[in-house]
Design a protein around this nucleic acid. Structure first.
Length: 253
DNA sequence: AATGTCTTCAACCGCGTCAGA
DNA sequence: TTCTGACGCGGTTGAAGACAT
């Protein structure tokens, strides 16, 4: 017996997410939470499978995502935990705040596994194979032993700026009636600096109080409190305010 | 400049697990 | 106890970029 598809896929969009879709999903989750992923796309007005929405939120949009290169300490942690746990990516991710299982899985397959293989395969001066023998990152070499076209990651390896590709993807965004009065350039980008910027510096004292604020305002989550406050604080967040108002969730601040 | 090869990583797919009816 | 639906996990894919030829 074949398992039914996770959702009715007729007419549902697949592939890279656009800026507009990101913003709709973010606004919806911040305002309503994600009680039911399967029902969420319909309620939010997204032509996506619930599974796809969940993945996008968890791996890219949620506020506590830490973006950018993995530090040497993080890489060491991954290697150490992988030794103990194997391919339990979610368990490994639990020990690395802000990192997702998908991200860790990718960095393992693209960098760490190769590095370990190289180390184990490289004999020391006495001809012994040792994990500490190689100081040269295997990522600098391709399978034929030539230098890789990619930059060496021997210092801090891993990710290039994924926002580059994402930005390009965003430029082909689908027009949405709710959004069309905004030019794409006017959208505050949800990139690697978005949440960290928002939750640091000027807003830091407020950010630490979001749980209390959420409680005070009888909101579902600290993130929702953040959403409201940031709308008030930052002119650049006018778009979000408008989204919330249009969604009928916030009649007044 | 054109083409080929390799690498990266976001996103998809299928399956296992679990909670609720 | 069984069934069903939703969630979460891990493996895999494929588009796009970077660099070599």
């Amino acid at each position: 017996m074949v398992r039914a598809p996770c959702c009715d896929k007729v007419g549902l969009k697949k592939g890279p997410w656009t800026t507009q879709e990101d913003q709709i999903l973010t606004a919806y989750v911040l305002q309503h939470g994600h009680g039911n992923w399967r029902a969420l796309p319909k309620q939010a007005g997204l032509l996506r499978c619930g599974k796809s929405c969940r993945l996008r939120w968890i791996n890219y949009l949620r506020p506590d995502i830490k973006r950018g290169n993995f530090s040497r300490e993080e890489e060491d942690t991954i290697i150490e935990l992988h030794e103990k746990l194997g391919n339990k990516w979610s368990a490994i991710a639990a020990s690395l705040p802000g990192r997702t299982d998908n991200e860790i899985k990718n960095v393992w397959h693209t960098h760490l596994k190769k590095r370990l293989t190289k180390k184990l395969a490289t004999p020391d001066s006495k001809g012994h194979f040792t994990a500490a023998a190689s100081t040269c990152d295997s990522d600098s070499f391709n399978s034929s032993g030539k230098m890789s076209p990619q930059p060496s990651s021997s210092e801090f390896s891993s990710f290039t700026d994924s926002s580059t590709r994402t930005m390009e993807t965003h430029s082909t965004g689908v027009k949405n009636e709710q959004m069309e009065e905004y030019s794409p350039e006017s959208f505050p980008e949800i990139d690697e600096s978005f949440w960290s910027d928002a939750l640091s510096s000027d807003n830091s004292s407020m950010a630490s109080d979001f749980p209390a604020v959420a409680d005070e305002l009888q909101l579902q989550t600290p993130e929702l409190a953040y959403g409201q406050i940031s709308n008030m604080m930052d002119d650049g967040m006018e778009f979000w305010y408008d989204v919330f108002i249009r969604a009928g969730g916030l009649q007044e601040l």
